[in-house]
Design a protein around this nucleic acid. Structure first.
Length: 272
DNA sequence: TTGTGTTTTATTGCCTCC
DNA sequence: GGAGGCAATAAAACACAA
């Protein structure tokens, strides 16, 4: 198994000067000198040097190599239990896998990035379905409202017609009941229920929830502190390797830290 | 086989924390 | 100031259709 992490990259040439492992050229060192110096290739000054077969025969250039499935499996398992690496664990893993500690660290870094990307996707779908549900609830309530209003109008008209016919004999105009009038006057309906602005739809969501509508949860995986539907999509937790606590905890209730995260990593997980 | 898109590994630069 | 984290990115490796 190739264990050193540097590689030679002809495409990254600058004029005729070819560099190996830019990580050790200035800036922060990508691996310590003990790890790298013994394996570092000399600079090449020409293409002849670059493609010197003798060199490759005696020292196979380290190209970027994929980790074996066993290595990845072990790394994944380790990531599942704890997504950050303490130095000791990094060294142990590196020894166990026959990798440079730097490679293990890089793998965890990239793995966290992948997890975050996936989590953002999940959160997006979650928020979208929550919004769609709220919107559909609101729309159906709006429909009901219109229906009831037209019913009230019809009944008011009927009542008025009835009163007119019963009041036909002169001198018998009964006093109107102000309470009843207000209840049945369709003109005043807006006093009973003020219209909801479109932009208020989301914020009014909590008042229109029913059994099937999104509810608040306090223990959901998410990247954001935010709303989640009580009926979560099935795919939300179906990936064993991505079974980390998500950060999308409910929007109204203070959230708790995910079990796998250290306190110093809260920034990454989106908690404050 | 080859062109192209995706995934994985690695680097760089900047930021924060101690 | 050093160590370690993250975002952005490069580039190799891989997958796959044509």
């Amino acid at each position: 198994m190739e264990s050193n992490s540097f590689f030679f990259d002809p495409s990254a040439s600058h004029g005729n000067m070819f560099f190996l492992n830019p990580a050790v050229q200035g800036g922060r060192s990508m691996m310590n000198m003990e790890e790298s110096s013994s394996k570092r290739r000399p600079f090449f000054c020409s293409h002849e040097d670059l493609y010197d077969d003798d060199y490759y025969d005696e020292q196979t250039p380290d190209k970027k190599r994929r980790l074996t499935t066993q290595q990845v499996h072990l790394l994944e398992k380790s990531f599942e239990t704890e997504n950050k690496l303490e130095p000791e664990r990094k060294t142990q893993l590196a020894k166990k896998l026959g990798l440079q500690p730097r490679q293990v660290a890089v793998w965890f870094q990239n793995r966290r990035a992948r997890w975050k990307t996936k989590q953002l996707e999940r959160d997006f779908h979650l928020l979208k379905s929550t919004y769609d549900q709220l919107l559909s609830n609101y729309d159906s309530i709006l429909k009901d409202n219109h229906l009831l209003r037209s019913e009230v109008t019809t009944l008011a008209e009927k009542l008025q017609a009835k009163e007119e016919t019963s009041n036909e004999p002169p001198g018998q105009v009964p006093e109107a009941n102000p309470h009843q009038q207000q209840q049945l006057d369709p003109v005043n309906m807006n006093q009973i229920e003020p219209p909801i602005k479109t932009e208020d739809r989301l914020s009014s969501g909590s008042t229109v929830l029913d059994e099937d509508a999104p509810q608040l949860l306090d223990c959901c995986d998410s990247y954001f502190p935010s709303i989640v539907p009580i009926h979560q999509p099935e795919e939300h937790n179906n990936n064993a390797s991505d079974n980390h606590q998500s950060c999308l905890v409910d929007v109204f209730v203070p959230t708790t830290s995910p079990p796998h995260c250290h306190s110093e990593s809260l920034g990454f997980w989106g908690w404050t």
